[in-house]
Design a protein around this nucleic acid. Structure first.
Lengths: 111, 111
DNA sequence: GTCGTTCCCATCGTCTATCGATGGGAGAAT
DNA sequence: ATTCTCCCATCGATAGACGATGGGAACGAC
């Protein structure tokens, strides 16, 4: 029974990651997941069952807006775009995340 | 209705913080909370309803062991001490946390 | 032309962790 | 004696992530 830490994500950071990804332009869910995996060298593995609920969340909060279209591979896809308030939220979350990580580093005494 | 981010902690990091704190020597719950708040300049605010369940968790996993005693203020207190496997766990969690934060930074493009 | 693969959507149920509220007891200080 | 600080702990609600599952539509290979 290995006590293997099996979390693919730091809980509470998914919204931040999605919002930041969307600053590169509107993107569909699958694309967002791909991007996160690629940029993070496969460290960040967002499952679809984490991703889509998160996108709903962001949409209901008005931080992204969705529209149907066709993907670069000509498939039916839902594109998510950052809204103005979404951009503000990104700033807030980014700041808050930095604050937390800094605090944790102080505890860890990380060089 | 301000959408104020009101989390006192990065979820998933509490065990790590506690384990690290205990490397300074055995400590009781209240002391651990005080230490985290102090070192982090009051950024990390661990409520008792987060702390005590966490300590149970750690205890059941064999990462800390508990013993009753008297605090420096002569109060009945339960002291928690790191075990050998707890130290290993600390190493693992520290490493994993670093990996995650690095990955997130890659996404954020943080300077 | 059908078969497998990749792409893309989404939900349901479970689990785990954090948190607000709550309750209690025992020194110490006034 | 009353109040304050210290120190323990649990319960119920909430939220977030995840495994499993179930589509459907384009594309290439055969």
């Amino acid at each position: 029974m290995g006590t293997t830490d099996n979390s693919d994500l730091l809980p509470g950071t998914l919204d931040l990651l999605i919002l930041k990804t969307l600053t590169r332009g509107a993107q569909h869910g699958y694309g967002i997941a791909r991007h996160l995996a690629t940029v993070s060298d496969d460290v960040l593995q967002v499952g679809e069952s984490s991703l889509y609920p998160a996108l709903q969340r962001l949409r209901l909060n008005g931080w992204v807006k969705a529209s149907w279209g066709a993907s670069e591979n000509n498939r039916r896809a839902r594109f998510y775009a950052l809204t103005a308030t979404g951009r503000k939220q990104l700033t807030r979350e980014r700041h808050e995340f930095g604050r937390m990580v800094l605090a944790i580093h102080k505890v860890l005494g990380t060089s």
